[in-house]
């Protein structure tokens, strides 16, 4: 009997390459196993995908709302309704004067006649407006603040414009925008909470699938333990299964969201046209895609790890 308890083993380099080889083999083996049971694999992947679709879709929805609202902020305008006794020439003079002011990007003059025509066209009152003895509308200047101005600076500009002698009323309708932003903030947090909850659901789905897989391969695990397999060796194929579930679930979720976006894109663009803006639907960026796939793969790995840690040690030869 040899003194040292040396197992019959190949050299270190060989073992390292064998270790890498076993990783590759586990990877391919677990993939092959999923391929050989397409129905159950597809079902698990679909459940993961649908679970991930909700937070991913919600995220995309938020991204688009932010896109629209950003668009709205850049079109913030101050309407200056001039006093009724200010003539067209004086109004044009004021326009030229304001144009040169700091913090003003553009000024457009809508004369009282133009305003009436527009009102006639859009209000549907039509000919009944002819009964008016004179045009009740004032000249209006639309002032577009420079894009670099923030809310307080815009308010200051509003105050300054209000003080112009020709101006009757200066109006800035941004309150609803502020409310929208607050709502968006709430929605953003909701997205985070939903993402966390559904990530947890993915963990449970993967964990349960791997648990069943472990149970169905009870015999194999017992035998491999008896012939000297380490826990890491036995664990590996299960962990790779989890990784595959997560990866495919993430990819399918991405496809579902992109297809849904395609279905929505048409009417969405039409909506944009109705608001005279060339809105187009924002979809996943490369970074978003990587995060989705990375997160789903990680969830698959963690889910299978939890299942393996819990159930593999319970299986011992009897």
């Amino acid at each position: 009997m040899t003194d040292r308890h040396q197992p019959p083993r190949p050299g270190l380099l060989q073992r390292l390459s064998a270790w890498l080889g076993h990783h590759a083999r586990s990877m391919v083996f677990s993939l092959g196993k999923l391929y050989r049971a397409p129905a159950s694999t597809l079902m698990t992947v679909a459940v993961i995908a649908i679970t991930l679709t909700l937070p991913a879709g919600f995220y995309l929805f938020m991204k688009n709302i932010e896109n629209i609202s950003g668009d709205l902020r850049s079109t913030t305008r101050i309407s200056l309704f001039l006093k009724l006794d200010v003539g067209e020439q004086a109004a044009a003079g004021l326009r030229d004067r304001l144009q040169r002011q700091q913090g003003v990007a553009d000024v457009r003059l809508i004369s009282r006649d133009e305003a009436l025509e527009e009102f006639r066209a859009s209000s549907g009152l039509g000919d009944s407006l002819d009964y008016l003895k004179e045009n009740p509308l004032p000249h209006t200047l639309l002032v577009e603040p420079a894009s670099e101005l923030d809310s307080p600076a815009i308010r200051q500009l509003l105050k300054r414009l209000q003080q112009q002698p020709e101006v009757d009323t200066a109006q800035l309708d941004t309150e609803w925008l502020e409310r929208l932003y607050t709502l968006l903030d709430i929605a953003r947090r909701a997205v985070i909470i939903i993402s966390l909850l559904f990530s947890f659901a993915v963990l449970l789905i993967v964990g349960n699938t791997i648990r069943l897989d472990i149970q169905s391969r009870y015999q194999e695990i017992v035998v491999t333990k008896l012939i000297g397999a380490t826990d890491a060796f036995i664990r590996r194929p299960f962990l790779y299964s989890g990784v595959w579930y997560g990866l495919f679930g993430g990819l399918l979720a991405w496809i579902i969201v992109e297809l849904s976006a395609m279905a929505i894109a048409g009417p969405y663009q039409k909506l944009g046209q109705l608001y005279r803006s060339d809105l187009s639907l924002v979809t996943f960026s490369m970074g978003d895609f990587m995060i989705l796939i990375g997160a789903s793969t990680a969830l698959g790995l963690i889910g299978s790890w939890l299942a393996v840690a819990r159930h593999l040690s319970e299986i011992e030869p009897q």
Binding site: R9, P10, Q14, A18, G21, H22, R25, I227
Partner: peptide, 13 residues
């Protein structure tokens, strides 16, 4: 082949 795979022998071996 299972014990040999566990021990980490190369494929041809």
């Amino acid at each position: 082949a299972m014990p040999l795979i566990i021990l980490g022998y190369p494929r041809n071996e």
